[in-house]
């Protein structure tokens, strides 16, 4: 990567602003129809999945039901929930599809996630000591993080985190390390914990008590189907999200580096810290368009259905300025993530 002059970086930023303005100027009825259709498909899939599970005396019905439910949950979290909570659809002024009213099918309450994700992670992307998403306070994913024998076990932690990812996110939002440092009061943490327990309680009752009980003699198949769907969603979410910022080429930054950061420099950091996944339209939807992690980090509040359309423009811009545009297949990116997890488990 060649070094850019300050003027180049600002020019790069202005070009990105133009892309943003173009999308905002052309947002309209087609986009609104898109998100409403995704929501309708997701809810229909969920209802069919649960209905099929109720017919799971037949093994194929169990399999189909679990698959439909898992797909519905993935869509709900990724293409709908994550993006609605980013405010990508606030411009429609529809109170039912709005970041301030949306709640998602996940154990963590949307309000807490909005703080740690939208504010902390998206503002301080890949800044050591600021972006708590680097390793989720659980792992060492950057050589700049000091090593500790505890990290020897991180391949195992990561493997365990994947199926339990939604619980990991809920815990992550509690910011226990700030509590330890005394930056956060026990009272605050307790209030948050109560909200988590309330939300998580309803989620648990729904998937592991209410629906299985309703199924009567099919209690167990329904319970296992729901559990499988939730874990599938968790593993998928974990995989896609880790591919966003932790493949090998993704850069990390220090607090000194970002002091007095301009808009152009902020854009540059978002680009260098994010990685895309290659795939077709259906794949992009199933990743919640986080396969366009670069575009998402440059423009977190633009509707996700537009990322694919602007990706070639962003890529061309990177070429013009001699900047890397990190994109690879899911398999390749996942492999580099795991390589990093293993490598940094050891002292470097």
């Amino acid at each position: 990567m060649k070094t850019l002059s300050g003027a180049d970086i600002e020019e790069f930023g202005r070009e990105l602003d133009n892309i943003r303005d173009d999308v905002i100027a052309s947002r309209g009825e087609d986009d609104a129809r898109y998100i409403r259709r995704v929501i309708a498909v997701q809810r229909a899939l969920e209802v069919s999945g649960r209905a099929l599970l109720f017919a799971s005396v037949l093994p194929p019905a169990w399999l189909a039901g679990t698959a439909a439910l898992a797909t519905a949950k993935i869509l709900e979290n990724m293409e709908i929930g994550h993006n609605v909570l980013h405010g990508q659809w606030d411009w429609m002024r529809d109170p039912e599809i709005h970041s301030s009213t949306w709640e998602w099918d996940l154990v963590s309450p949307a309000s807490q996630w909005k703080h740690t994700h939208n504010y902390l992670h998206h503002t301080w992307t890949n800044v050591l000591g600021k972006d708590r998403d680097i390793g989720y306070s659980l792992m060492r994913l950057s050589p700049e993080q000091p090593w500790h024998p505890y990290y020897l076990g991180q391949p195992l932690y990561n493997a365990m985190l994947a199926p339990l990812f939604e619980w990991g996110i809920a815990l992550h939002d509690l910011e226990l390390e700030r509590l330890r440092r005394g930056d956060k009061s026990w009272g605050q943490a307790f209030t948050q914990l109560r909200a988590i327990l309330h939300k998580a309680g309803r989620q648990v009752v729904k998937d592991y008590v209410a629906f299985p009980l309703l199924a009567g003699p099919l209690f167990l198949p329904v319970l296992i189907g729901n559990l499988t769907a939730n874990m599938t969603r968790n593993v998928w979410g974990h995989t896609v999200i880790f591919c966003g910022h932790f493949p090998d080429e993704a850069a990390v930054f220090t607090e000194e580096q970002i002091e007095g950061e301009t808009r152009g420099e902020w854009y540059l950091r978002q680009l260098l810290g994010s990685c895309n996944l290659d795939g077709g339209p259906l794949f992009h939807i199933m990743t919640g368009n986080l396969s366009h992690q670069i575009e998402h980090h440059l423009f977190p509040d633009l509707p996700s259905n537009r990322y694919a359309e602007i990706a070639p423009r962003v890529r061309a811009l990177c070429e013009r300025f001699g900047l890397p545009y990190n994109s690879g297949s899911l398999l390749r990116q996942t492999a580099t993530v795991w390589k990093r997890v293993f490598r940094l488990a050891l002292p470097t």
Binding site: R43, V47, E96, E103, W104, D105, K199, R202, Q203, V205, K206, A210, F211, L214
Partner: peptide, 12 residues
């Protein structure tokens, strides 16, 4: 609502 949480029956 316990079955549709976090949504409401209305949403379906």
């Amino acid at each position: 609502g316990w079955l549709t949480t976090p949504l409401m029956p209305d949403d379906y």
